[in-house]
Computed example of a mutant assay.
Amino acid sequence: MKNKQVIGALLLRVILGVIFIGHGAEKFQGGIGNIAGWFESIGLPGFLAYIVASIELVGGIAMLLGFATRIVGGLFVIVLLGAIVKVQFAAGFIGGYAYDLALVAMSAYFLLNGSQLYSLDNYISKTRNK
């Protein structure tokens, strides 16, 4: 049973990382200045676009590698809750925040549990304990 849980967590971590890499890369490729302008249009400081896009891209890479998964998971939860409250909630459940809510649950899992299988966190932990 334990092996199935660890493999399941690996699958969640890889998929979560890939999703966030995609979202962060899209913000930078599409013109981060445009995203900053959109942030301002919804009442958020434009500089937050750079922070969010960086968390998504760099955090996605870190999550994929299993590095600082608890910290990154927490950052993802904050970003996603902000997106749900500020943007997605108004669109309703199915057309709005359902997808982000699933990502919040996945991110919260890593905030609470970290990562084990094929993760830099696990490798670093093992080398420190030797």
Rank of each mutant, 00 (worst) to 15 (best):
G33E: 13
Y50R: 12
W38F: 14
V18I: 13
S54W: 05
M106R: 02
Y123C: 12
M63P: 02
G30H: 01
W38G: 10
L64C: 00
K126Y: 02
V87M: 07
G43A: 06
H23N: 05
G66H: 03
Y109R: 07
S107R: 12
I51N: 01
N113H: 15
P45H: 03
A102L: 14
G33M: 09
M106N: 08
G73F: 04
G33W: 06
L44E: 01
A62F: 15
G30P: 00
A36M: 09
I21S: 04
V52L: 05
G60R: 07
I71G: 05
L57C: 03
A68H: 11
K27E: 00
G82F: 06
G60F: 10
K130F: 04
A91L: 15
L75G: 10
G114L: 07
L103W: 08
I35R: 12
G30N: 04
L103Y: 08
Y50M: 10
G22V: 09
S119K: 06
V79Y: 03
K86F: 07
A108H: 09
L44A: 04
L75D: 00
A91G: 06
F20P: 03
V77F: 04
A83M: 00
S115Y: 03
F110T: 04
L81T: 12
Q88L: 10
G66M: 04
R128Q: 15
G73D: 05
A25C: 01
G33S: 11
S125Y: 08
Y123R: 13
F67P: 01
A91H: 14
G73A: 13
L112M: 15
I35D: 10
R70P: 00
F93N: 11
R70L: 05
G114S: 07
M63N: 02
S41C: 11
G33Y: 05
I32K: 13
S125W: 05
A53L: 12
V79L: 03
Y118S: 07
I51T: 08
G82P: 11
E26G: 13
F76H: 07
A108T: 07
N34E: 11
I61L: 12
I21G: 03
N129R: 14
A68T: 14
N122V: 00
L103H: 06
Y123L: 15
P45A: 10
A25K: 09
A98M: 14
T69V: 10
F20W: 12
L65N: 02
S107T: 01
A49Q: 09
M106V: 14
I71V: 15
F39Q: 11
S115P: 02
A36P: 02
I78A: 15
K126G: 05
S125D: 09
I21H: 08
R70G: 07
G24F: 10
I61K: 01
V87Q: 05
L80K: 05
I84C: 05
F67R: 06
A62I: 07
M63T: 01
T69G: 09
S119V: 00
A25E: 04
F67I: 08
V87G: 02
A53Q: 03
S125L: 13
T127F: 11
A49V: 00
V77A: 12
I94C: 06
A91M: 14
G74T: 04
L44G: 02
L112D: 09
Y118T: 01
E26F: 08
F28E: 00
